[in-house]
Structures are given as structure tokens and as C-alpha cells.
Amino acid sequence: MRWTIPNSLTVLRLLAAPGVAILFLYFHRPWADWLALALFVGAALTDWFDGYLARLWKQESKFGAMMDPIADKAMVVIAIMVITGYNGMNPWLILPATLIIFREVFVGGLREYLGAKSGLLKVTKLAKWKTTAQMIAIAVLFLGTGLDYLNVLALEGMTPEQHQAAVAAGEAEAIRTCGNRDCASYANLVGIWLLWVAAFLTVVTGWEYFVKSLPFLREDK
């Protein structure tokens, strides 16, 4: 392995994956949410840069080809676990998250079984869109968890009606709004919809990968 810039970016993205969860151990919320969002977005951007720079500088390598999907999957799976935990195990969130994690484990098992033959199954454009959709959805959901926590701090144990009265009396801070709704609910709603889109693409690409692998799974007669 050569420590080229593209390979270094891939390794940094892999190390950032557990960092997203570790931030919640050492920082109080909502700082943990904002730092996790920044780390996740920064790491997600390296997913585009490492491939682009590797092609531009002709530094594509077997190490990068192997580590790139591993780093992507580690980021997505760990971030989804953190988000589902801090969103109160919302069933509308758990189902697409389960589909995504199941697909990644299933395809990972297939790749391990196929070994060197898995290199013959090229990554499709739809698979790249799948990864992009996953990362955008997760980033929006991290934004939602941070805003949700700020809403909880603003309420300070009050009911929404009591909070509105306290805001009118100048005794409490108003909850951040985006039009007719609070910003947290918008972010969570958009994030969940995006995660469902990502889950759909994840299932489709997983099925495509399985179909392509069938010729390599046939028993020898």
C-alpha cells in the first residue's frame, strides 16, 4: 500500500466512522449533535474527493478499491445506530434503517464468500446514488436530533401551551421555527423521507448485486 492522498482520505473516513458515536461520550448535547454532523459531512465529502483525486492523479489502487466501500458502510451503519437511539426508536426510522443495515451485511457476506471474484462485479451508478442518498439523509437527521434537543431545552418541562405563555411573558426562549412548523420537525420529516428513498435504492442495488453473483454461486456438477 502507498500512502497517497486518496488512500489517506479513505483511511481518515474509516476512522471518522466510530468517531461519530464517540463524540456523544465526551460532549454534552447539542454540541455532540453539531460535532457529529460536522464530522459526518466532512467525512462524506472525502468519499467524493478520494475517488476524484485517485482518477485525476492516476493513483487508483487495490487498497483504495477495498477500503472505500468498507469506510462508507462503517460510516452509514454506525451513524444510523446513533440516530435511531437518539430518536426514541421511531418505527418510521427503524424500518428503513433495518433494511439498509441488512443489505450491507448481506452484500458484505456475499463479497467475502466470492473473494477475488467479487472484483468482477462492478459498482453501478445506482449504487453510488444509493450511498449519496444515505449520507444526505443521515446528515439531515443529525441536524434534526440537534434541533430536537434545543427544543427540549427550550420547553424545560413545560407543556407547549405553558411554553407559549412563558415566551409571551419574556420568561422563555422561543423555539426556532421554519414557517408554520418548528425547524426540528421539518428536518426530521425530510430526513426520514430521504432515508426511505435511500432504503429503496439500497434494496434495489442489493438485489442487483445478488442476481449478478448467482453465476458464481452455482454448485459445480
Rank of each mutant, 00 (worst) to 15 (best):
Y186L: 10
A168Y: 05
L23S: 06
E60F: 05
F210I: 11
F40G: 00
M89Q: 14
K73Y: 03
N7G: 10
H163T: 10
I94H: 02
L37H: 13
L39R: 01
L12N: 01
W48S: 04
A174V: 10
F27D: 01
G157M: 08
L120H: 06
I175P: 04
L195P: 03
G146N: 11
D68P: 03
A38S: 06
T124H: 11
L25Q: 09
R176D: 03
T145Q: 08
T84A: 11
I22R: 01
T159M: 09
M1T: 04
G42Y: 15
D220K: 13
F27G: 01
F63L: 15
V203K: 08
V11K: 00
V82Y: 07
W129T: 07
A71Q: 04
Y186G: 00
A198Y: 14
L189S: 14
I78S: 02
H28P: 02
W48K: 09
T132P: 00
V140N: 01
M67H: 03
L194P: 00
L53G: 04
L194V: 04
V167S: 05
Q59R: 14
K122D: 07
S213D: 03
N7E: 07
N87W: 15
G88V: 09
M75V: 08
L121E: 06
I5L: 15
E173T: 10
P69A: 11
V197S: 02
M158P: 00
R13L: 05
L110H: 07
L217Y: 07
D47Y: 15
K58F: 06
S118K: 00
K221N: 10
A74G: 01
T98Y: 05
Y186A: 02
A198K: 03
T177C: 04
L23T: 10
G64H: 10
T124I: 10
A133H: 02
L35M: 12
V82M: 06
L95C: 02
P18W: 13
P6Q: 08
L195H: 08
T98E: 01
V11S: 00
W48P: 00
L39K: 00
N151F: 10
Q59A: 15
P69W: 14
D68Q: 09
A199W: 14
T145K: 02
R2I: 12
D220R: 13
A127G: 14
C183A: 13
I136C: 04
Q134A: 04
I70A: 06
L189A: 11
P18T: 12
K221P: 14
F200V: 12
P96T: 08
L155H: 12
A79S: 14
V204L: 13
D182A: 07
M66R: 11
V77T: 14
G109F: 13
V190Q: 00
N87A: 12
G157I: 12
G206D: 07
K122C: 03
V167K: 06
